[in-house]
Amino acid sequence: MSAPLYQIVCPECTQANRVPADKPAAMAKCGVCGAKLYRAKPIMVSGADFKVHIAKTKIPVVVDFWAAWCGPCKAMDPVFKQVAAELEPAVRFLKVNTDEEQKLAGDYAIRGIPTLILFKNGRENARVSGAMAAGPLKAWIAKST
C-alpha cells in the first residue's frame, strides 16, 4: 500500500504537486520547475495565482489581505512571517495586496485590513480582522483548522 498524498501548489509556477505524507515536506520540490514547494515564508500572489492556490492546495491556507500604506498591516507583517516560518509545511501562507487586487478584495468583502481568511478544501473556513501577536494568531489558526 502506498503512502497517502497531499497536494500543494508551487509558489513559482503554480502547478499542483502531490507530495507523499511520509516524506519530509520541507525538502519537497516542484515536479515541473524544480522550485522548493515550501520556503517558510508567505507567498505574494496575484488574483489568478490566489485562485489556483485556494482551489488546488489541500492543506489549510491562511491569506493576509493587506495594503502597503496600512499601519496595522505593517505591524502584522513580521508576525505573519514568523508564524509562517513556524507552521509551514502544515499550513500555506499567502499575502494579497488589496490595492493591486481590488476585485479580489471585493469578491471576499474585505472591509478592513489587515483581514486574515483561513481556507480549507477551497472554502473559507474562518476570518478575522485586525493585527494580532503571534500567540493569538497561532491559536486562531489551530482553532480554525
Rank of each mutant, 00 (worst) to 15 (best):
A40Y: 15
A25F: 12
K23H: 14
S46Q: 00
L104C: 05
P4D: 06
A134W: 07
M76F: 15
V96A: 07
N17Y: 08
D64S: 04
M132F: 03
C70M: 10
I43R: 13
L118P: 02
V128N: 05
A28M: 03
C13S: 07
A84T: 05
K56H: 14
K51H: 15
P42Q: 03
L94I: 08
V62A: 06
I54S: 11
Q82E: 14
Q102L: 10
L37Q: 08
K36R: 15
R127P: 00
S144Q: 00
E88T: 00
R127F: 02
K36L: 15
K138E: 08
D107L: 00
L137E: 00
E12R: 13
A48C: 09
A40W: 15
G130I: 06
L94M: 09
D22C: 09
W140T: 01
A133W: 06
V9Q: 05
A109F: 14
G112K: 14
N17V: 13
A126M: 04
S2D: 15
L118E: 01
P89L: 10
A26T: 14
A131E: 11
S144T: 04
G71Q: 13
V52W: 07
F119N: 03
Q82Y: 12
E86K: 11
L37G: 10
R111N: 10
M44F: 14
D22F: 10
C73S: 13
P60H: 09
D22K: 12
Y108T: 05
C33Q: 05
T14I: 09
V96F: 07
A75N: 12
A133F: 07
E86F: 02
